[in-house]
Nucleic acid binder design. Structure first.
Lengths: 346, 346
DNA sequence: CTGAAAGCGCTAACAC
DNA sequence: GTGTTAGCGCTTTCAG
């Protein structure tokens, strides 16, 4: 068996000092004689000491762990549970999020705990996890407008930061992108390249993000003399994008430009266009949203409105950290500017 | 501020019993008078008690946490760090893995900690994390043949279970699929539908999985009178699949069937085929591997060799658990059978 | 600048 | 069946 791991006590004995002193050098506290510090360092190396996280957490009352929760709006239909996780991770959007979170956490030797909160039971588990101090706070990514988790978190004042403004208002800190501006960028680009009959495939319209991308797009179109824009609602998935495009094409065969509210749907749009014998971008220009890996994987590669996801996710982690440390007591929000990335599709 | 959380002591006082008794009902230990148990339950509800994880871990010497690590083979070129996480998650393969792990863990109120070990520094952090008991063990997914992490884990006998047989031999438990059989399935399907000039796009040939899929495919082809099969090596990515197909087509324009060693590459293959004016499956049949979300997203939807990923991942978690509990002391391996899933591409 | 000592909240013997 | 008690390994006053 693995013999008992060395403790502070062992190191102290080895170095001929007290536990307190060893603790000080481990935690990088200044007031330690350089010579002693060196001796302790050596003793640590010699014994192969590693501080025990549970013991430390018990006294500091910090888990030094944060939860990354992907949450939905389901009730208790168990069947959904696992499919939900798979679906959430299938969205290429997610890779950049995790990358941003990990980028912030790793230098602090912290790692995110992955949780899914699709059902009521799962939500309660998330709350329990936080309450018992298994994690100090949560970064939450809602996939549905009706998601009850933010409110629950707020009610118990558990530290958390949301990705995107919640549809159900709650006094919570969040990070978001200026979706209206993103819609505007898409509209102006389509207009600039000469589109005269642009349409849009929106996200689920109960989500503020989807609404705002739409209204930003519409406003910009209107401002340039296009009062009416054909719309088809999608669900942020490839298939929903494809079927929205099919509907659009049936009613408005003359469409020469499409703004899809995310890259996955834009991929579906391109797919349908190709199958209908239309060339992208020659016959129909397509602009996506997100700049996820789907944008590059798409044929043709998508011109898209980029959200600075890594930065946004890192900011979420930072705000959560500040909240946990007590430096941030009032809810706040940070809004990022989107940016148009030109590739081949428009 | 949030007032101090209730402790066992508080609940004990409230219920008029001792801490030990409360602990017993919390942990579901039998020897407790039903009436008292009920009283304690009520006291718990009344006080809103939640057991403190750090305190518990300190005495049980269990973190009740496991790490899910995606590891590579890099040295210390920092630049890679973040891109690695994004790239790893971009593989649709990953969604099913997480889903399987979570499926096993969740009923036990456990959640995976997500870690990336692409550089030497990151690997050391993973080891430190495990040594200090922040996690009880690791589920490791290597993306490279030269990955040094398994050996490091083995050297310190830290509990871990690998996905796939490691290229560098190590006395470690792993879960895998019968790749040769998978290759065989692909070959036989292509043959059965009449392909006479089948080729294959392999994975990185330093990976045992890629080698085995290839040799299984070749063997089956040979057994059916096709001693030679054109090969192009890919890197398990969309782009590598596309360029491998381009090379194949340049040298062997008459190809009528392709076995791509994963779905992502199969998608790239279909892409190139379409651009070359070949119809899938009429002109060229394509079979993928994995049955990841890419298989469904592909046009046409891919006929593919399915790995039971969720089951495999869940099994990994179970084996790790057994190892942590000390029930499993010798390395073992569990091999799953692949299955052909017929869709439109072949 | 260093050491002694008091817990953090919980589990697990061991008594009763 | 229930209570008492001794720590788990660490941080952190508080003296010196």
């Amino acid at each position: 068996m693995t013999r008992k791991a060395p403790t502070l006590e062992d190191v102290a004995r080895e170095a001929g000092v007290s536990r307190a002193t060893v603790s000080r050098v481990v935690n990088g506290i200044r007031n330690v004689d350089p010579a002693i510090r060196e001796a302790v360092r050596e003793a640590i190396a010699r014994t192969g000491y590693a501080p025990n996280r549970a013991a430390r957490s018990l006294v500091t009352r910090r888990a030094e762990t944060i939860a990354l929760v992907v949450s939905g709006a389901g009730d208790d239909s168990e069947s959904e549970q696992n499919a939900f996780a798979a679906r959430a991770l299938a969205d290429p959007f997610f890779g950049r999020v995790v990358s941003g979170v990990v980028g912030f956490l790793r230098p602090r030797s912290m790692y995110p705990v992955l949780m899914f909160a699709e059902t009521e039971a799962a939500r309660q588990q998330v709350l329990a996890y936080l309450r018992q101090g298994s994690a100090d706070g949560a970064l939450v990514f809602s996939t549905h407008a009706e998601d009850p988790l933010p409110a629950l978190l707020a009610a118990e004042s558990l530290p958390c930061v949301l990705f995107a403004r919640p549809a159900l208002p709650a006094p919570l800190t969040y990070v978001d992108v200026d979706h209206r501006q993103g819609g505007r960028l898409a509209a102006e680009h389509l207009l600039a390249r000469g589109c005269r009959r642009a349409a849009t495939v929106t996200g689920p319209l109960d989500l503020p993000a989807a609404q705002d991308r739409l209204s930003g797009f519409q406003d910009a179109m209107a401002r340039h003399g296009h009062p009416y824009v054909p719309i088809a609602e999608g669900g942020f998935t490839f298939d929903s994008g494809a079927s929205a495009m099919t509907r659009l094409l049936a009613e408005h065969p003359g469409i020469d430009g499409v703004f899809a509210a995310n890259d996955l749907m834009a991929q579906g749009v391109c797919q349908v266009l190709r199958e209908s014998g239309k060339r992208v971008p020659e016959d129909v220009a397509v602009v996506g949203f997100d700049d996820s890996s789907a944008a590059v994987a798409c044929r043709p590669p998508l011109t898209t409105v980029r959200q600075p996801m890594e930065e946004m996710a890192a900011t979420m982690a930072r705000l959560l950290q500040e909240q946990i440390e007590g430096e941030l007591t009032e809810p706040t929000s940070v809004i990022f500017e989107p940016e148009l990335v030109r590739r081949a599709s428009a």
